[in-house]
């Protein structure tokens, strides 16, 4: 017989951390539930304590401080898209979150959940990493910060310790002429998991030369990959065709995918560069339009 599952909906961070660190058993954090409830249904995880974090204000709000956005880990995709200033500042990250499932799912799915669930194909993760987001984590030992790229470690695995919880993500202030974009490939137009995904964030100078870039690809390795060589191919260029080609080649070279039900190795390697080039073009056009 399945053991009983306790359900708690704490109102404060401290209460949440106390619950999570004080329980001897399988604890799970419930944010949007769009992955967790499926895993529970399939019997892959049988928590004995479920902590719903959606009543904690720090986790469910978007705020801005000196041009830097703070994105609560339990903010859902629809909330992001409806926050005009955020969506305008981080269109790539917003698009990535808005690619997660149907609108029904987007009303629930959160960026923190997407990250901690640690699927290599998570759409919002390459966008978060490309954005240079820093996660603020609270645990029994207090509060710490960590780069997003260091949180997911492999399929279904993350680096959080027992009792730890991601509170929010801090995005760097937007420089002039900078923008992000995220593109993924799926077989249908909606509802699929990414076969490959590419998040790009770049900054141009007044002359249109790329001075900063981050390129992150998803679904092509055990976790999202930040490809420095790809960024290097853009930095110092006007992001012309030849730079984009080089960037795409660097992306393909970094892939270490598997063959699975969603795509073949060869396909992923090839299409990752296509998605990266197309995403870069979108980011570039956006950056040129911003001041």
């Amino acid at each position: 017989m399945m053991s009983e599952m306790r359900f708690e909906s704490p109102q404060t961070l401290e209460a949440a951390v106390a619950l999570l660190s004080g329980h001897n058993g399988i604890t799970k954090i419930l944010a949007g539930g769009t992955d967790l409830l499926i895993q529970m249904r399939g019997g892959r995880v049988e928590p004995t304590l479920l902590v719903d974090v959606k009543s904690i204000p720090e986790l469910t709000s978007i705020s801005q401080n000196n041009g830097a956005f703070r994105l609560g880990a339990a903010v859902n995709a629809m909330q992001m898209s409806e926050h005009e200033a955020f969506a305008q500042s981080w269109p790539g990250l917003t698009e990535a979150a808005m690619l997660i499932g149907s609108y029904q799912i987007k009303s629930r799915a959160t960026v923190g959940g997407n990250l901690c669930n640690a699927s290599p194909a998570a759409d919002s993760v390459p966008a978060l990493i490309a954005a240079g987001a820093i996660a603020t984590i609270m645990g029994p030992q207090g509060i710490r910060e960590q780069k997003v790229e260091d949180i997911a470690t492999g399929p279904g695995k993350n680096s959080l310790a027992k009792g730890e919880i991601v509170l929010y993500f801090t995005l760097p202030p937007r420089a002039p002429h900078s923008a992000d974009a995220y593109l993924r490939f799926i077989p249908r137009t909606e509802m699929d998991i990414a076969v490959v995904g590419a998040g790009i964030n770049l900054t141009l100078n007044d002359k249109g030369i790329c001075i900063e870039a981050r390129v992150c690809i998803g679904a092509v390795a055990e976790k999202a990959l930040l490809v420095k060589e790809a960024a290097a191919a853009l930095i110092g260029s006007t992001c012309d065709e030849s730079a984009l080609e080089k960037m795409g080649a660097a992306v393909s070279a970094a892939c270490r995918p598997i063959d699975d039900k969603r795509g073949t190795k060869a396909y992923r390697i090839k299409v990752s560069s296509v998605m990266a080039r197309r995403a870069a073009t979108i980011a570039l056009n956006r950056a040129r339009r911003t001041h």
Binding site: F7, M78, Q104, R108
Partner: peptide, 18 residues
């Protein structure tokens, strides 16, 4: 599909206690 506080969700991915 149902709505919860006017937002549409899949009721199969929403706990009764929520």
């Amino acid at each position: 599909t149902v709505t919860v506080d006017s937002k549409m969700v899949c009721s199969c991915l929403f706990l009764g206690v929520e």
